[in-house]
Design a protein around this nucleic acid. Sequence first.
DNA 1: TGAGGCTACGCAAACGATTGCACTTTGGTC
DNA 2: GACCAAAGTGCAATCGTTTGCGTAGCCTCA
Lengths: 356, 356
Amino acid sequence: MDRQGARAKTGAQSGRAPVTLAQIARQAGVHVSTVSRALSLDDDVRDGVAAETATLIRGLAEELGYQRDPAGAALRTGRSRMLGVLVPRLTDIVLATIYEGIDAAASAAGYHTVVANTGDDPEMQQRRAHALLARRVDGLVLGDARSDCDLVAELARQQIPLVLVSRRLPGRVSVTTDDTLGGRLAAEHLLGLGHRRVAVVAGEPYASTGVERTQGFLDAFAEAGLPVPKSHVIGSAFDVPGGRAATDHLLGLRPRPTAVFAVNDFAAIGVMAAVRDAGLTVGQDVAVVGYNDVPLAAALPVPLTSVRSPMYRMGEVAATTLVNMLNGKPGRSRRLRPALMARASTLGDTPPGPVP
Amino acid sequence: MDRQGARAKTGAQSGRAPVTLAQIARQAGVHVSTVSRALSLDDDVRDGVAAETATLIRGLAEELGYQRDPAGAALRTGRSRMLGVLVPRLTDIVLATIYEGIDAAASAAGYHTVVANTGDDPEMQQRRAHALLARRVDGLVLGDARSDCDLVAELARQQIPLVLVSRRLPGRVSVTTDDTLGGRLAAEHLLGLGHRRVAVVAGEPYASTGVERTQGFLDAFAEAGLPVPKSHVIGSAFDVPGGRAATDHLLGLRPRPTAVFAVNDFAAIGVMAAVRDAGLTVGQDVAVVGYNDVPLAAALPVPLTSVRSPMYRMGEVAATTLVNMLNGKPGRSRRLRPALMARASTLGDTPPGPVP
DNA sequence: TGAGGCTACGCAAACGATTGCACTTTGGTC
DNA sequence: GACCAAAGTGCAATCGTTTGCGTAGCCTCA
């Protein structure tokens, strides 16, 4: 036979071979199965061994620096204790923050996470999702669900435990902010400041975030008797160039809108840049509202009014929900509360007051 | 015995049990070892099976949708084909970009990556590194090496294959930009514009990035016969508040510096904010240079002059280096070339020219 | 024709952890 | 004092893959 056993087992710890249950068993003078039980993660199993024996074993495990081999455990149990996470891109601070929340909650529950970028591209989503499944992750957190393709449906058909985060999809368990309410908050803020002619930079049509934020905003204006014309709602990429391009168009409208709601902060920064380039002043000539309240928003030369969404918390809740589902509990969707942070981009340099 | 085998094997694919080598072997009428060889990643092993048999087996594997079970393979070989990555924080776009490069190169080489945030905190680094090792990663990419603690030395002592990225440490394999050169480029740019009284926002002392960028900058000014006084070099956190705080101090100096070099872009944004708050104009009264050239730099109201570093590429090279090391090749350090991107924050609104 | 070599494959033993079942021991009850 | 239950532990199989060795068959060359 091979003399593999003589070599170090893991590539990473090539120094000394890792401690196994068998070694602990030998030293404790018990069978390896008893050691396994004493160190089990499952309380019921752990209770099956005498308190005295358990203490001895756990002491020994600690002393020898035992670390359960995930490969052995996964092979036997069929559970890898890893969660897969798909995001459009990690360089987007919103998704990065959500991911940090996911990872923190997963760690706390004894899971590791493996994250992959999909660039919001359906083919890439497909590829990356299958790569994660090939790694035998126990479940998926999807941060890039699109309403215009059926990856999620396909995964659901395969009974793969999954939770959506940030974006929603009908009939799926998701953890998001209440985007409709968020859009409404933005609208009410602008209405309160006296704005009557407003425009929306609406994001991509396949993302529920942009769609619902837009809808909430439009609803509020409609209810106030000031419906926003379709020509004033324009799609865009979720980044600075996207917001800039949309705004170049909006500033051409006559009469010009006095306020713009962009469905995320990066688009809003693009809006501000375009306004500035047009020789206008943000907060005076044109009010701008963003969404998410990324840390940068408050640090901008003209601080950006934005709808704050609890991104980190969203990630935590999503991961916790998935872990619960893996433990057999039913998953249910959650919509977290957003809150408006008013700043100079709508208030100008002067205290708030109606703008005629 | 338990009837575990009857249940689905993986949590994620609870629908249908995954295909195994044994199933393919049965259908192909060969032994499972032959199937293993035919599907091996190792060319030498794969050549050991007849071309005809191999074709049959690979066809069957494709048809049945076979995916190697990483747990089984890892258990046998002791290699998990996973790389651990430690970063200060993924919400920092610089590290997020580097990580994207790492992950892309790792994927291409058949590895998955598991990333963890350490918040640049030594205790957290320790915890997270050990959690990754408990997952039996084959090696580590460290993006948060500190010169003031000995985690890296400890890991090296345990013979754990590792590559540093972004930050260097003497005697370790690392992939960075040539930060000394980068600092020099910033200095030469300012010298060329005629600046004589300059200051440096130097970052944290434990990070080689800040230290070397500062050193390169100071060297160039010293060589030009214009040594920068120690009082004009001030430490800072690597973020917006850090840059702001440092600048509040620098602007109090008399005579006031005409230019500030911040060792990263976020600190530079803080510098710009502080300059603005002091009633001065960036690019006119005070020139500002950043480092990394994050996408936002060019999109700022006053576009930021910055030393561009190939962040994504740095990640790719780091991952490739680590994979090579795992394959027995010796690792060697690389320093990638930075390049200065001149913009309005140093040039003002007018074309460049000497500033008296 | 027979020895030697090579090719292609089979055999079986691991890797480390988990768990259903069987067994022993202990303690309690009638 | 006999019987039973419960608690604690051991036994052994099993998850899926890899790989050193053994061997059957074929070809080559003397």
